[in-house]
Design a binder for these strands. Structure first.
Lengths: 234, 234
DNA sequence: GCTTGCTCTAAGCGCTTGCTCAGCTCGGGG
DNA sequence: CCCCGAGCTGAGCAAGCGCTTAGAGCAAGC
């Protein structure tokens, strides 16, 4: 299967699927406002103003302000999960797949840091039922990375005593890029992706390649129940 | 005069220095509320209620709601800087100092994750003049970690092609613990500290100890101007 | 006993919030 | 020509916001 390199990164038209055009303009305006000020500090008047409309126009396309956040969060988490599962299901060694997962995931968080900031840091502003829906997507992202690490340990490529804990650390490292990345800064999204892929590989690689293990040690086995939601609460 | 608790970890009485007692109760209530709901979603009525007072009582001890956040952020950043500079100024090899820095910094973010969440993720809610004051403290934290990495590279202990970028990654990894750490989870703060110290050491350690370098390469030299604010904006 | 100063409360002010609704505009079908 | 539904606006409502004010309670000083 050919990898869609051009569209797998964070560029392109992220909100092209949102129709009609007025609804898309409002969504893009909401992403910018939420990223700049945070969900609770953003007013519906601000969102409508950025989209060049009156406050009332917002409610023709969205029932509430929270529905806007939910739509943004859903689309963003779908994209994140797609990036990680594509890398996990790809070809090559565990090291190659992990490197690709971190590189593309970080690339998206840097290039789309405005969107990613809303997606990753406004989970608590969602209504409870929407929050549980999103948390399930995050659980599957976690599982994709944990699978790569588990494969690498099994094949002797990686030396990782605590697979769930290291999975959490790798994802945490990538996600936090959205917080500090600055488009006007010295690094391009591609450079950060390459830097982080290298750092993570060194973090998990076995110093010298060994024989694959036959029995998977209980302390190392990927445990589906090991991680619950990785959000701030619960 | 008795000095404050000399606990290097995050336990102890974090707000013991705040006087009088009613002001401390309000501050602790504000920390809990800000951590749970975020600054903008928290009302002054909620803070006062948690402290067992009427809303007006808040304004006897603090001029505004933002002053509460500023006080919390200032005390927390002072503590964070103290932890990192203590480790950077400590004795031992660069590896030992880096390990101690990460271990204690992560320990604080996990044990005091309620406070740390407010300190690390509510920077943008500060008034501009308070924000610049806090950003300066963060710059000094960054410098402390960068110094350890630079020493390690100089002495041949570490192999780090991009010192400023790796400094940013290490700090980012530690800080994000405050976001996901859950007191009811499987890991204790000490366990997370130990895990992360090991991961970071592997991330930077030279595979085999080399001779120290005589001239510091230009690409690796710690550059004071290299990092600006590491906050979300600017 | 009275004043003074400090802490705190009850009540509420002025304003902004998320959201609503009657009505305007306008392209397309009869 | 009128009508129609879709998209949008101006005006505004009820609720909740940060913060203020007048005054009560009470310990300390004289």
């Amino acid at each position: 299967m050919r990898t869609a390199e051009q569209t797998a990164d964070g560029e392109g038209a992220p909100w092209g699927e949102v129709e009609p055009e007025a609804a898309r303009r409002l969504l893009v305006a909401a992403v910018e406002a939420f990223a700049e000020r945070g969900y609770h500090a953003t007013t519906t008047r601000d969102i409508a103003g950025r989209a060049g409309m009156s406050p009332a126009a917002l409610y023709i396309h969205y029932k509430t302000k929270e529905e806007l956040l939910h739509r943004i969060s859903r689309i963003g988490h779908d994209k994140a999960l797609e990036i990680l599962t594509a890398a996990a299901d790809g070809e090559g060694t565990a090291a190659e797949r992990l490197s690709e997962a971190v590189r593309t995931f970080v690339l998206w968080h840097a290039a789309q840091h405005t969107t990613a900031r809303v997606v990753q840091y406004e989970l608590d502003s969602l209504a409870p039922e929407h929050r549980t829906e999103i948390v399930e997507l995050r659980r599957r992202s976690d599982a994709a990375v944990r699978r790569i690490l588990g494969d690498g340990v099994r094949d002797g490529e990686f030396d990782v005593p605590d697979v769930p804990g290291t999975t959490l650390a790798v994802l945490s490292l990538c996600i936090d890029v959205a917080r500090w990345f600055n488009a006007a800064g010295r690094r391009t999204p591609d450079e950060v992706g390459a830097l982080y892929a290298g750092l993570v590989l060194r973090m998990v690689s076995a110093r010298e390649p060994r024989e694959p293990r036959e029995p998977v040690g209980p302390g190392d086995s990927p445990d589906p129940k090991a991680q619950g939601a990785d959000g701030p609460q619960q």
